[in-house]
């Protein structure tokens, strides 16, 4: 059975950097769909995004990046926690958001 394509929405600046428009569709390996799995696949496809969402060395989310899905804030979830089933099923996108900050 083919795994559904994972949908990812990037903020405008990162879409420009990666040279994409609209959502990104990612094919990920078998197993639980986690934040780490999705971001690894994203950075593998678009290496210019390395370091812009999470620290290249520690893997930690950058301070002003948020992860949302299915109307939940998943920013502080473990990177290895399974994402919501609807994200794994390709029904809902995984949202990478630039936090509201500054004036």
């Amino acid at each position: 059975m083919t795994r559904p394509t994972i949908r990812v929405v990037l903020p405008a600046h990162l879409k420009n950097l990666a040279g994409v428009s609209g959502e990104v569709g990612l094919d990920v390996p078998a197993g639980p769909v986690t934040q780490r799995l999705v971001l690894d696949a994203l950075e593998g496809r678009y290496p210019m995004l390395r370091g812009t969402i999470r620290d290249q060395r520690t893997g930690k989310r950058r301070a002003f990046i948020r992860f949302y899905a299915c109307e939940e804030d998943l920013s502080n979830e473990s990177p290895d926690a399974p994402l919501p089933a609807r994200v794994a099923a390709g029904e809902e996108p995984f949202l990478v958001i630039g936090a509201m900050a500054g004036g």
Binding site: H13, L17, M48, G51, T52, R62, I65, G98, A99, A101
Partner: peptide
């Protein structure tokens, strides 16, 4: 402040750029 450091290079005097 959101996305950190990116480096860009142009090989045509700034008409096009590549990270």
């Amino acid at each position: 402040g959101w996305f950190g450091q990116v480096m860009q290079r142009s090989d045509d005097g700034g008409r096009t750029w590549s990270p």
